[in-house]
Design a protein around this nucleic acid. Sequence first.
DNA 1: TTCTTTGTATTAAGGTTAGTAATACAAAGA
DNA 2: TCTTTGTATTACTAACCTTAATACAAAGAA
Lengths: 125, 125
Amino acid sequence: MIIRIDELSDVPIYLQIRNQIVMGISSGELAGGEQLPTVRALALEMGINTMTVSKSYQLLKQEGYIMTDRKNGARVRTEIRVQGGISDSNKTELKRIVSEARLSGVSRQEIVSLVDEYYGTDDKG
Amino acid sequence: MIIRIDELSDVPIYLQIRNQIVMGISSGELAGGEQLPTVRALALEMGINTMTVSKSYQLLKQEGYIMTDRKNGARVRTEIRVQGGISDSNKTELKRIVSEARLSGVSRQEIVSLVDEYYGTDDKG
DNA sequence: TTCTTTGTATTAAGGTTAGTAATACAAAGA
DNA sequence: TCTTTGTATTACTAACCTTAATACAAAGAA
């Protein structure tokens, strides 16, 4: 999976990496059990510090998305630990995004279409 | 409208204020033309610095959500300037939220229901 | 054993941002 | 003249992000 960093974003690099890996897992682009690049390889490839990548991996590990093992590297968990629904902060963020969209003339249907696109077209919803 | 600050949130105070006002406008809790609290009053009420509130108002003004006028204070614009759809950063945020929700077992329908709730039940979508 | 590669830890430093504090200004109405 | 409004300035503290340079333990390979 290709990870791209937006230098102009307010989101810290380690969070951008974390977010893209989470989205990759959800979309299926990253399969369960799949090997992730080593922290050094990814840091070199992206021209950033190894500790920045390590921070991303530690966060993903703590959240239950990946497993890390010395010498084995990092792998996507086959069974993602669920954390019980949508977090309060994500609900607030969703409300903010919907509000801004609505005030800029975006229809409800356009938002729902985006949700469908991001959720994927499997039998989960 | 009651504005509440989450001290534990990663979101800066000035942004929390800005976001809650935007959501208030979208929900109709803040009507077009409605007077907002003065920067000093809101700062005193919330126990924060006036410049922090001022920063929120400047941002809202720049984005076209409110108008500020010396001696007249700040008011919600009657005609919100649209900015052309959902921003790229909001799309990315939405994708992240949907991905996290999906991986924690939330159904597509649950997300859509939240969107409906936040969008409101008028004839816009 | 020795070497290499893995994630991880440590320490230091620099840069940016958020927030506060204290004060002041211009505009406009009372 | 006085008050209230948003706004501006300057200085300071604190927190966070990122980099840098090393180093360590674990585990497989040679």
